[in-house]
Structures are given as structure tokens and as C-alpha cells.
Design a protein around this nucleic acid. Structure first.
Length: 255
DNA sequence: ATGGTAGAGGATCTA
């Protein structure tokens, strides 16, 4: 089984790339973030034409998450239960006995911002809900744009980014609280190339200079981590014309 | 150096 995640930064713009990517990579599930589409505008028919079902929750202009899958998704939940949030950032569904969650964690803007406070309230709400989900589902994968670089090796210039949003200690602590629930950062289960990132700013030739951060993650429950055989970033997609600023990440799980 | 680019929507906001 292959499960992937991709912050597409507008599914409307990126739909041809997503369809190509599904055809080429044939994941069983693909989690999307920043679809930026209301539900009535979701291109479910175009996606169905290449053999994928969709579950989604979106809004105009900002946010929006989805899961595309070959098999039917059940027990669909949108948002964090018990956490009032206008912003569409979470969707969960069950495929066979595997629970899959697509998340778009708030960016936070900068550490002085109100948005940073929202991010630091949002993360414990996610953690609290996941604690219950992990009790209910032994095989759980949470994938998405976490907007957190967990360690300095996930940042092209740790000195420059020290204490800044995406790298600040409170964010990293919140991320480690997620792992403490019984989740593993699948990327670090394997030896990886140095300077591996998933997001590069559109500005200042950041991608060409590999000035990136690893902020998109696939976290696996211990049972799924034990079955995980690869985790890879598809950096090639970032080189396409009109790319998303994020690259997809995919894990392969042995049967 | 507070810049720069992309997306949505139609002036700024978000990232």
C-alpha cells in the first residue's frame, strides 16, 4: 500500500499535475492540502475519471483538505471534534482497517502574530483528538503540511531560522507531543540524503538554491511504522512549470 | 537588506 501527501496550493491550478501524478505513482491514498475550493467546486468527476474517489472539506480562497483513494473511504470526519474552527484543515477517513488523516496545520505567519497563537492552540487540540483516534485505530497514518520543521537538519539555514515561525521551540515541542502519542516520523525511519526538504519559497530562487524546509510529514502509528518500507520526497514535481511550492511525500507499506 | 513570488479575487490577504 502506498500513501502520499501533497500541499497543492490551489487544486484548480494544479489539477493536471495531480492527475498526472496519480497516473504515474498509483498511490492507494493521496492527501491534499490547500485545495482552496468550496465543496461544490471540487473536481471529483475529473479525479474519478482516473480511478480515484474523493472526500473533501473546503472553503473559498484559503485552506481546504481532501483524500483521494482507490477504495471507498468510511467513517469520514471533518475538522477536529470539539474544536470550533472556521478554517477547513482536517479530514479523516477509514480504508479497510487503515485510518488516514489529511491535515493542514496553521502556518502561524510569525511568532508575534495572532496567527501564531492560533497555531499553538490548534496543535494541542489535534493532539487531544489523535490520542482517542490512536485508541480506536491501531493502523493510523496522519499526513500533511504540518508547517513545522522538527529539527535543525530539516532547515537549509538553521541559524537564520532559529526561533522563527516553522522552527520555534514551542512549535517543535508541540510536534514532539504528537510523536509521544505513539507516532513515528516515517521519513526518519530510513537513511535519507542530507538537505532533504519538502517546501521551498517561490521567491529568491529558493528552489534552485535548495533553500528549503521539511515541513510536510507522514506520521505512522507503531503498527504501520513496522510495515513501512520506504518514505520519499518527490522533488521532481517542484521542477515542473507552474509548480506548487511543496513537493509530495509518499510512504510504501508492506502488505 | 523587511525585499521577493504565487494564488485568489478584484484591494489586499495568506503563505
Amino acid at each position: 500500500m502506498k500513501i502520499a501527501t501533497w500541499n497543492v496550493n490551489s487544486l484548480k491550478v494544479r489539477l493536471p499535475q495531480v492527475i498526472d501524478w496519480l497516473r504515474t505513482n498509483q498511490p492507494d491514498m493521496l492527501c491534499l492540502q490547500e485545495t482552496k475550493l468550496t465543496d461544490e467546486n471540487f473536481p471529483a468527476a475529473e479525479i474519478a475519471a482516473v480511478g480515484y474517489q474523493s472526500v473533501f472539506t473546503g472553503q473559498k480562497t484559503y485552506n481546504g483538505v481532501a483524500i483521494l483513494s482507490k477504495q471507498q473511504g468510511n467513517e469520514v470526519i471533518t475538522g477536529i471534534p470539539g474544536f470550533a474552527d472556521e478554517q477547513k484543515r482536517v479530514i479523516a477517513a477509514t480504508y479497510g482497517d487503515v485510518r488516514v488523516i489529511s491535515v493542514y496545520v496553521p502556518n502561524g505567519d510569525n511568532v508575534e502574530s495572532e496567527k501564531y497563537g492560533y497555531k499553538l492552540r490548534w496543535l494541542p487540540a489535534l493532539t487531544g483528538w489523535l490520542q482517542q483516534e490512536l485508541k480506536d485505530y491501531k493502523k493510523l497514518a496522519i499526513l500533511g503540511d504540518f508547517n513545522i520543521a522538527p529539527e535543525d537538519r530539516d532547515v537549509y539555514d538553521p541559524q537564520l531560522w532559529q526561533g522563527k515561525v516553522l522552527c520555534s521551540q514551542p512549535e517543535r515541542t508541540a510536534f514532539s507531543e504528537l510523536l509521544k502519542l505513539g507516532l513515528e516520523d516515517s521519513f526518519r525511519l530510513f537513511e535519507q540524503a542530507e538537505k532533504s526538504y519538502t517546501w521551498w519559497d517561490y521567491r529568491m530562487m529558493a528552489f534552485r538554491l535548495n533553500r528549503g524546509l521539511r515541513i510536510d510529514h507522514i506520521l505512522l502509528s507503531h503498527e504501520l511504522a513496522g510495515a513501512c518500507v520506504t518514505c520519499a520526497i518527490d522533488k521532481a514535481v517542484r521542477k515542473l512549470e507552474r509548480p506548487s511550492d511543496h513537493a509530495p511525500v509518499m510512504v510504501e507499506l508492506s502488505p
